[in-house]
Amino acid sequence: MSADTDPFALFDLPRRHTVGRDAIEARYLELSRAAHPDNVVGEGTAARRAAVERASAVNAAYRVLRDPVLRAEALVKLGGLDLDSTDPERGAPHPTQEFLLEMIELRERLEDGGPAGLDALRDDVDARSEAALDAAIAALDAGEFRRAAEHLVARRYFQRFLDETEASAP
């Protein structure tokens, strides 16, 4: 992620997970007013394309900054680790053996529990997902990007579990 695609830099915010909601909203309105493609209606293709790209960057950054998970993932990426990559050095850390066993156990509980146990199980996974995010944020605050990335990978597994069980819920 280069400097000009850093959502924090774009919004003049320090690179940390705690952000002021009001500051984001105010800056977003300011940037949107300046960058909106409506400002260049009637101009040439290049100007219009540039405006669309600028506004897209503002909207993408806004989306990341408002969402605690995306914000954490962006900070990890700025720390040099890309969760969407499989690169052994700079990509997402592989989940530990211990974590994979935890997931297998959850899957088994899903199969055994039946519909009655589903809500309780989902609540449990939801709590684990939240805890993983909190741990990732703590690691980010301590400047430990790899540890933060590990927690965020775990959170994605929990999230996927929740998404899938929601889709199959009656």
Partner: peptide
Amino acid sequence: MTSVSIHDTGALFQIAEPT
């Protein structure tokens, strides 16, 4: 695991001065 993030396209990025 797949995940997609939304990015700007990088190119031509610059905040507009009102023209």
